[in-house]
């Protein structure tokens, strides 16, 4: 039995999203939380790429000896790939900012535990 690769990809994307939310919610280590969030973003990226997949499709480039109707019928959908590329860039930059903030906070508190650093500070204000 051949498993439908598109269905499996959707399934993987769904699992990545669920694992990501789980990690962000239940793991105390901030680096692990961020890895979880990266999983979540990757799950969404995989979901979008999978949507653009077309079984037996061709690359969406109109080559010289290709008829337009053949191209229109067989080419996969290009938009999802463009979106994912943008989202990967956004994900990388937010990841960098988050890790930078964690470095600063680790220097300040000497810990990367979410409950210690990001706990409730109460009403004590400067």
């Amino acid at each position: 039995m051949i498993i439908d690769s598109q269905l499996m990809s959707f399934f993987t994307a769904g699992s990545l999203i669920v694992i990501g939310i789980f990690a962000a919610l239940f793991l105390d280590n901030l680096i692990k939380k961020i890895i979880g969030l990266a999983f979540l973003a990757d799950g969404v990226n995989l979901f979008i790429i999978t949507m653009g997949y077309k079984a037996g499709g061709i690359v969406y480039i109109l080559l010289p000896n290709m008829t337009i109707s053949n191209f229109a019928q067989n080419a996969s959908y290009p938009l999802p790939f463009a979106l994912v590329l943008t989202n990967i860039v956004i994900g990388a930059s937010t990841l960098a900012v988050m890790l930078g903030l964690i470095i600063v906070l680790n220097k300040k508190h000497g810990s990367i535990s979410a409950s210690k650093i990001l706990g409730d500070k109460g009403e004590k204000i400067e």
């Binding site: 999203i17 939310i21 962000a24 901030l30 939380k33 961020i34 969030l37 979540l40 973003a41 799950g43 969404v44 979901f47 979008i48 949507m51 938009l79 999802p80 979106l83 989202n87 956004i90 937010t94 900012v97 988050m98 903030l101 964690i102 600063v104 906070l105 300040k108 650093i117 990001l118 500070k121």
Partner: peptide, 27 residues
């Protein structure tokens, strides 16, 4: 810094989920 990290962490849950919604509409 603590507040900034909290805000960006929550943003990294909300952002991808918003994108998932957009992806569903695109799909």
């Amino acid at each position: 810094y603590e507040t900034a990290l909290k805000y960006i962490l929550l943003g990294n849950i909300a952002g991808p989920l918003l994108l998932l919604g957009i992806a569903l509409l695109l799909g």
